[in-house]
Lab assay of single mutants.
Amino acid sequence: IMNCCEQCGEYLPSKGAGNNVLVIDGQQKRFCCQSCVSEYKQVG
């Protein structure tokens, strides 16, 4: 599985992206930055 930001689609290095993760309905959603997390929450 490719690690990509759920919001902008930016490729995420394998281990460096652990900071910005949401778990929604048991699914891990990865993000490249906190602003993408916030945007995803607003839209979702």
Results as ranks from 00 to 15, higher is better:
residue 1 I to D: 15
residue 1 I to V: 12
residue 1 I to T: 07
residue 1 I to E: 12
residue 1 I to W: 00
residue 1 I to M: 14
residue 1 I to F: 04
residue 1 I to G: 07
residue 1 I to L: 05
residue 2 M to N: 12
residue 2 M to G: 07
residue 2 M to Q: 08
residue 2 M to A: 07
residue 2 M to L: 09
residue 2 M to V: 04
residue 3 N to V: 03
residue 3 N to P: 03
residue 3 N to Q: 05
residue 3 N to E: 11
residue 3 N to C: 06
residue 3 N to A: 09
residue 3 N to I: 05
residue 3 N to H: 07
residue 4 C to M: 08
residue 4 C to V: 11
residue 4 C to S: 15
residue 4 C to E: 13
residue 4 C to L: 09
residue 4 C to K: 14
residue 5 C to Y: 00
residue 5 C to T: 01
residue 5 C to P: 00
residue 5 C to G: 00
residue 5 C to H: 01
residue 5 C to S: 01
residue 5 C to Q: 00
residue 5 C to A: 01
residue 6 E to S: 07
residue 6 E to R: 03
residue 6 E to F: 06
residue 6 E to D: 13
residue 6 E to W: 03
residue 6 E to Y: 05
residue 6 E to A: 06
residue 6 E to T: 06
residue 6 E to K: 05
residue 6 E to C: 04
residue 6 E to N: 05
residue 7 Q to Y: 06
residue 7 Q to L: 06
residue 7 Q to V: 04
residue 7 Q to C: 11
residue 7 Q to N: 02
residue 7 Q to H: 10
residue 8 C to A: 01
residue 8 C to D: 00
residue 8 C to T: 03
residue 8 C to Q: 01
residue 9 G to M: 06
residue 9 G to E: 02
residue 9 G to A: 07
residue 9 G to L: 04
residue 9 G to P: 01
residue 9 G to F: 12
residue 9 G to W: 02
residue 9 G to Q: 10
residue 9 G to S: 02
residue 9 G to I: 02
residue 9 G to H: 00
residue 9 G to D: 01
residue 10 E to G: 04
residue 10 E to W: 02
residue 10 E to Q: 02
residue 10 E to M: 01
residue 10 E to N: 03
residue 10 E to L: 00
residue 10 E to K: 10
residue 10 E to A: 02
residue 10 E to C: 00
residue 11 Y to V: 14
residue 11 Y to K: 15
residue 11 Y to T: 15
residue 11 Y to P: 14
residue 11 Y to A: 15
residue 11 Y to I: 08
residue 11 Y to C: 13
residue 11 Y to M: 09
residue 11 Y to E: 15
residue 12 L to M: 02
residue 12 L to Q: 04
residue 12 L to S: 01
residue 12 L to H: 00
residue 12 L to G: 03
residue 12 L to V: 10
residue 13 P to G: 04
residue 13 P to A: 00
residue 13 P to S: 06
residue 13 P to V: 01
residue 13 P to K: 01
residue 14 S to M: 03
residue 14 S to F: 01
residue 14 S to L: 09
residue 14 S to C: 10
residue 14 S to Q: 08
residue 14 S to R: 02
residue 14 S to A: 14
residue 14 S to K: 04
residue 14 S to D: 15
residue 14 S to E: 14
residue 15 K to H: 14
residue 15 K to C: 12
residue 15 K to D: 15
residue 15 K to Y: 13
residue 15 K to W: 08
residue 15 K to F: 06
residue 15 K to V: 12
residue 15 K to M: 15
residue 15 K to L: 09
residue 15 K to Q: 13
residue 16 G to P: 07
residue 16 G to S: 11
residue 16 G to V: 04
residue 16 G to Q: 13
residue 16 G to D: 13
residue 16 G to C: 09
residue 17 A to D: 12
residue 17 A to L: 06
residue 17 A to I: 02
residue 17 A to R: 01
residue 17 A to C: 09
residue 17 A to S: 12
residue 17 A to K: 01
residue 17 A to H: 03
residue 18 G to A: 12
residue 18 G to E: 15
residue 18 G to F: 00
residue 18 G to C: 05
residue 19 N to Y: 02
residue 19 N to I: 08
residue 19 N to K: 04
residue 19 N to A: 13
residue 19 N to V: 08
residue 19 N to P: 03
residue 19 N to E: 15
residue 19 N to M: 10
residue 19 N to G: 12
residue 20 N to L: 09
residue 20 N to W: 06
residue 20 N to M: 11
residue 20 N to K: 06
residue 20 N to A: 11
residue 20 N to Y: 10
residue 20 N to P: 13
residue 20 N to I: 06
residue 20 N to V: 12
residue 20 N to D: 05
residue 21 V to L: 07
residue 21 V to F: 00
residue 21 V to W: 12
residue 21 V to M: 09
residue 21 V to G: 08
residue 21 V to T: 13
residue 21 V to P: 02
residue 21 V to N: 03
residue 21 V to K: 15
residue 22 L to I: 08
residue 22 L to Y: 14
residue 22 L to P: 10
residue 22 L to G: 08
residue 22 L to S: 07
residue 22 L to A: 10
residue 22 L to D: 12
residue 22 L to K: 10
residue 22 L to T: 10
residue 23 V to M: 15
residue 23 V to F: 15
residue 23 V to L: 05
residue 23 V to Y: 09
residue 23 V to N: 08
residue 23 V to A: 08
residue 23 V to H: 10
residue 23 V to S: 13
residue 23 V to D: 12
residue 23 V to W: 10
residue 24 I to K: 10
residue 24 I to N: 07
residue 24 I to L: 12
residue 24 I to V: 10
residue 24 I to M: 08
residue 24 I to S: 09
residue 24 I to E: 13
residue 24 I to C: 08
residue 24 I to W: 11
residue 24 I to Q: 07
residue 24 I to F: 13
residue 25 D to A: 08
residue 25 D to F: 07
residue 25 D to G: 10
residue 25 D to L: 02
residue 25 D to K: 07
residue 25 D to M: 03
residue 25 D to I: 11
residue 26 G to Q: 10
residue 26 G to V: 05
residue 26 G to Y: 15
residue 26 G to I: 04
residue 26 G to L: 04
residue 26 G to A: 10
residue 26 G to F: 08
residue 26 G to S: 10
residue 26 G to N: 14
residue 26 G to D: 15
residue 27 Q to P: 06
residue 27 Q to E: 09
residue 27 Q to S: 07
residue 27 Q to L: 11
residue 27 Q to K: 00
residue 27 Q to W: 06
residue 27 Q to R: 06
residue 27 Q to C: 10
residue 27 Q to H: 09
residue 27 Q to A: 11
residue 28 Q to R: 02
residue 28 Q to T: 11
residue 28 Q to Y: 04
residue 28 Q to S: 07
residue 28 Q to C: 02
residue 28 Q to W: 02
residue 29 K to C: 00
residue 29 K to A: 05
residue 29 K to T: 04
residue 29 K to G: 05
residue 29 K to R: 10
residue 29 K to V: 10
residue 29 K to H: 13
residue 29 K to W: 02
residue 30 R to M: 13
residue 30 R to S: 14
residue 30 R to Y: 03
residue 30 R to T: 14
residue 30 R to L: 15
residue 30 R to Q: 15
residue 30 R to F: 09
residue 30 R to P: 14
residue 30 R to D: 14
residue 30 R to V: 15
residue 30 R to E: 15
residue 31 F to A: 07
residue 31 F to R: 03
residue 31 F to L: 05
residue 31 F to Q: 08
residue 31 F to N: 03
residue 31 F to C: 04
residue 31 F to P: 06
residue 31 F to K: 00
residue 31 F to H: 04
residue 32 C to T: 02
residue 32 C to K: 02
residue 32 C to G: 04
residue 32 C to S: 03
residue 32 C to I: 00
residue 32 C to Q: 01
residue 32 C to W: 01
residue 32 C to R: 04
residue 32 C to V: 03
residue 32 C to D: 03
residue 32 C to H: 07
residue 33 C to I: 00
residue 33 C to N: 07
residue 33 C to T: 11
residue 33 C to W: 01
residue 33 C to H: 09
residue 33 C to P: 03
residue 33 C to K: 08
residue 33 C to G: 11
residue 33 C to Q: 10
residue 33 C to V: 04
residue 34 Q to R: 05
residue 34 Q to L: 06
residue 34 Q to F: 11
residue 34 Q to C: 09
residue 34 Q to P: 11
residue 34 Q to D: 12
residue 34 Q to N: 11
residue 34 Q to I: 02
residue 34 Q to W: 06
residue 34 Q to A: 13
residue 34 Q to S: 12
residue 35 S to G: 13
residue 35 S to C: 09
residue 35 S to T: 09
residue 35 S to V: 09
residue 35 S to E: 12
residue 35 S to I: 13
residue 36 C to M: 01
residue 36 C to H: 03
residue 36 C to P: 07
residue 36 C to Y: 02
residue 36 C to E: 03
residue 36 C to A: 06
residue 36 C to L: 02
residue 36 C to W: 01
residue 37 V to K: 09
residue 37 V to S: 07
residue 37 V to L: 11
residue 37 V to C: 12
residue 37 V to W: 09
residue 37 V to F: 05
residue 37 V to T: 13
residue 37 V to P: 08
residue 37 V to A: 10
residue 37 V to Y: 12
residue 37 V to R: 09
residue 37 V to Q: 11
residue 37 V to H: 00
residue 37 V to M: 15
residue 38 S to D: 10
residue 38 S to P: 04
residue 38 S to G: 11
residue 38 S to I: 09
residue 38 S to N: 04
residue 38 S to V: 09
residue 38 S to Q: 12
residue 38 S to W: 06
residue 38 S to T: 09
residue 38 S to M: 11
residue 38 S to C: 09
residue 39 E to G: 14
residue 39 E to C: 15
residue 39 E to M: 14
residue 39 E to Y: 13
residue 40 Y to G: 13
residue 40 Y to M: 07
residue 40 Y to L: 07
residue 40 Y to R: 11
residue 40 Y to K: 11
residue 40 Y to D: 11
residue 40 Y to Q: 13
residue 40 Y to C: 15
residue 40 Y to W: 12
residue 40 Y to E: 13
residue 40 Y to N: 04
residue 41 K to G: 13
residue 41 K to Q: 12
residue 41 K to D: 15
residue 41 K to S: 13
residue 41 K to P: 12
residue 41 K to R: 13
residue 41 K to M: 10
residue 41 K to T: 15
residue 41 K to L: 08
residue 41 K to F: 04
residue 41 K to C: 05
residue 42 Q to N: 15
residue 42 Q to E: 09
residue 42 Q to S: 11
residue 42 Q to L: 09
residue 42 Q to F: 00
residue 42 Q to M: 08
residue 42 Q to R: 13
residue 42 Q to A: 14
residue 43 V to A: 12
residue 43 V to L: 06
residue 43 V to E: 10
residue 43 V to H: 03
residue 43 V to G: 13
residue 43 V to R: 11
residue 43 V to P: 14
residue 43 V to C: 07
residue 44 G to Q: 02
residue 44 G to V: 08
residue 44 G to P: 06
residue 44 G to D: 04
residue 44 G to L: 05
residue 44 G to M: 13
residue 44 G to R: 11
residue 44 G to C: 07
residue 44 G to E: 07
residue 44 G to S: 05
residue 44 G to A: 14
